[in-house]
Amino acid sequence: MIEVKNLVRTFKSGDRTIKPVNDVSFELEQGALASIVGKSGSGKSTLLSLLGALDKPTSGDVVVNGVSLATMPDGKLTNYRRRDIGFVFQQFNLIPNLSAVDNVMLPMEFAGVRKGVRAERARQLLEQVQLDPYKHVRRINRLSGGEQQRVAIARALANEPKLILADEPTGNLDEQTGEHIIELLSTLSRDHNTTILVVTHDRALANKTDRRFRLQQGRLTEEPVRTRATAAVTG
């Protein structure tokens, strides 16, 4: 369960104060698949970074399973990111001199998973995101943008987090692979009770989420969507 309470993040730009996140409040049940849509620069990525404890809010709080992130010390925030969060960044942010499989193994290494276990799990995750096996050991800088996106998604899933925060996860993928990734995220949410919040411009992806939020000038509003069950019935 994630509770976002009156979240505000301001930045100074010269004499001006910008509020990309302005008094945002919402709740997400465990296992929910939700999306945030909005124009570029509307504050979607800033909101995502606040939820993932990459940044600290100016005011307000994020409460995860009853634990406040606002008062959590840095060391515990690191643990929170390692154990509970999986990030898919818009620009992938993979380590360029490591192979695909090494990149996927990194979060597991930080979590203390044994080498043999993490290597096997990394291989399975890369297969799940449909990366050709012979590319598992390729360096990241020798993979295409779409392949890097899939490695980034596999890395986010490495420690089986409770919350996946994905910034444009299908942005660099072809339609077929994008469909597969949407299906994968949906399965994780449904079968593994993983909460997934995606920031997207992809209408198809947004339409397949349980809840859809719109961020406009820092303010968040929820839009009505068909539920997965409804969507399945109505096709």
Binding site: T78, R81, R82, R83, I85, F87, N93, L106, F110
Partner: peptide, 16 residues
């Protein structure tokens, strides 16, 4: 810096 930020974002402790 960016790479260090990535490592921290995916849970790497400062000491590592």
């Amino acid at each position: 810096r960016r790479e260090i930020g990535v490592l921290k974002a995916i849970g790497a402790p400062n000491r590592t």
